[in-house]
Write a protein that binds this DNA or RNA. Structure first.
Length: 481
RNA sequence: GCCCCCUUCGUCUAAUGGUUAGGACGUCACCCUUUCACGGUAACAAUAUGGGUUCGAAUCCCAUAGGGGGUACCA
């Protein structure tokens, strides 16, 4: 009967899923958190549901306002907007206590008067005897008089759930059917001796409060789920559907942590990745789009997204593939997108140049860039006065002979500074000096920009314009002779 | 220790019991090219191990190994 009710209510709710992302503000938003948020968001979008944000700030020692702002701005940057205002877990504290009392009154939870020290001692003894340790249920069914007596003695107590006999099953959307025997679960603590509620309890109450229909979170919570289900059952609350996502690991196969290259979403913004690239890459970590294509717009991902195609095993974060995806998206980006992204990141270098010039420059650099920062770096080099590394200089001008550059400089003084004129000049110099076209171009490129790579030489020359090109060439020769 | 979960190229992943185990990133070679990148073509590369079941196993079952999580008055 209960199962049927659960089935009916979950069917009803399925029409309008409500999901949440529940970070604790003890640090910035990292890649793993972003992935969890993303999958929740995708699921909500896919089913026209709601995506809520709950800040789990009950650990007052470690929670900081700064991190709340950072997390929200990182989510915002990624485009993972939440519905409504975000919810502070700490605001729900009085409710937590009310529910605690309710459970106590209904006899579904009880006061346990063991101290931590006593339990530690018992645990130690079991370990020595090589017996599995279970918290003794000594106080589970004592009479009200005994309870009152302990209370009068001012004995400290925790509140524990009376875990019933039987087993707890649920169907995880990713992991499938999971069954745990209740005897494997201790009467776990709902409230500490200082009265503060524990994580498993608070999460459950808040999720129920927010009418969450689908709990989508990291698989580090998989083992907590049966406990939470027991709380739902004790309170006769509808049980949400669960979906646990495998972890994201660093390149060494270990859980992502601060030791790893870049774990902060903010860092990827600063490195010049576009949000759509991060989202595309993250969506592919642990999820199979059922397609040979891998480059998707956000809308395409929403359309294709299915939780049942999420992988069970953890995935390693691979920056190389991210770079490739980023490059693919960059090629598809419009000039307008690119310029606005550049302006967000770093535009100081471009401010003294005309809009048209910057447009042409960006267009020129787009093709060979993986992310926005690549454009900026190359742009800076082309825009600023070149500096020459000795090493490269000797490689390119083997015998310190600058004849080609001098010839080119004088040859450039024609009336029409066009591609065909420049090409003809380069050709002539190549023939006259009996040097290959490649060598001529390399020398000119280096003299003009100070680098040995980058866009087509003629394009750079045209972009910079006749005057600027000639003065750079003259400076080059002046500096070195 | 006990409980739950996981295991296909270096990495992300395909393969309703029958495929030369496929694709992508990366790597390498070649082509294109003034350079770098893009693009194109090929190559290298995987079913953790051992037993079953079956005509036939990456796929089902059982062990073993390895990894993750829980077993906390952490979250």
């Amino acid at each position: 009967m209960k199962a049927l009710q659960r089935f009916e209510s979950s069917r009803l709710r399925m029409n309008y899923p409500i999901v949440r992302f529940a970070p604790s503000p003890t640090g910035y938003l990292h890649i793993g958190g972003a992935r969890t948020a993303l999958f929740n968001w995708l699921f909500a979008k896919k089913h026209q549901g709601k995506f809520l944000l709950r800040i789990e700030d009950t650990d007052l020692e470690r929670s900081e306002r700064l991190y709340i702002d950072q997390i929200i701005s990182a989510l915002d940057w990624l485009g993972l907007n939440h519905d409504g205002n975000y919810i502070l877990q700490s605001n729900n504290l009085s409710n937590h206590h009310a529910v605690l009392n309710q459970l106590l009154n209904q006899g579904k939870a009880y006061r346990c008067f063991y101290t931590k020290e006593e339990l530690d001692q018992l645990r130690l003894e079991s370990e020595k005897a090589k017996k599995p340790f279970r918290v003794p249920t000594t106080y589970r069914d004592i009479s009200q008089e005994e309870v009152n007596k302990h209370l009068q003695d001012q004995k400290e107590f925790t509140i524990r759930l009376k875990v019933p006999e039987g087993k707890t099953c649920f169907e995880d959307l990713v992991y499938g059917n999971i069954t745990v025997q209740n005897r494997e679960i201790d009467d776990f603590i709902l409230a500490r001796s200082d009265g503060s509620p524990t994580y498993n309890f608070v999460v459950t109450i808040d999720d129920a409060d927010m009418k969450i229909t689908h709990v989508i979170r990291g698989d580090d919570h998989l083992a907590n789920t049966p406990k939470q289900i027991l709380i739902y059952e004790a309170l006769d609350l509808p049980i949400p559907t669960f979906a646990h996502l495998p972890m994201i690991l660093g390149s060494d196969g270990k859980r992502l942590s601060k030791r790893h290259a870049a774990t902060n979403v903010q860092e990827y913004k600063e490195k010049g990745y576009q949000p759509k690239s991060i989202i595309n890459y993250l969506s592919l970590l642990g999820w199979n789009p059922d397609s040979d294509d891998e480059i998707f717009s956000i809308n395409e991902i929403i359309e294709k997204f299915e939780l049942n195609q999420v992988q069970k095993k953890p995935a390693i974060f691979d920056e190389k593939k991210l770079n490739w995806i980023s490059g693919q998206h960059l090629q598809k980006s419009s000039l307008r997108e690119l310029t606005s992204a550049i302006k967000d990141l770093d535009f100081t270098w471009a401010e003294n140049h005309s809009e048209g010039f910057i447009k042409d420059l960006v267009l020129l650099l787009q093709e060979r860039s993986k992310n926005i920062q690549d454009i900026i770096e190359l742009g800076k080099i082309i825009v600023s006065n070149p500096s020459y590394s000795k090493e490269d200089l000797h490689k390119i001008f083997i015998d310190n002979n600058f004849e080609i550059i001098e010839n080119f400089t004088t040859g450039l003084s024609f009336d029409e500074f066009t591609a065909s004129n420049i090409e003809e000049l380069i050709n002539n110099i190549s023939i006259q000096n009996e040097v290959s076209l490649g060598v001529v171009m390399k020398q000119i490129r280096f003299a003009i920009t100070g680098i040995t790579y980058g866009p087509s030489l003629v394009e750079i020359l045209l972009l910079l314009g006749q005057d600027s090109v000639i003065s750079r060439l003259k400076n080059f020769v002046k500096q070195l002779t």
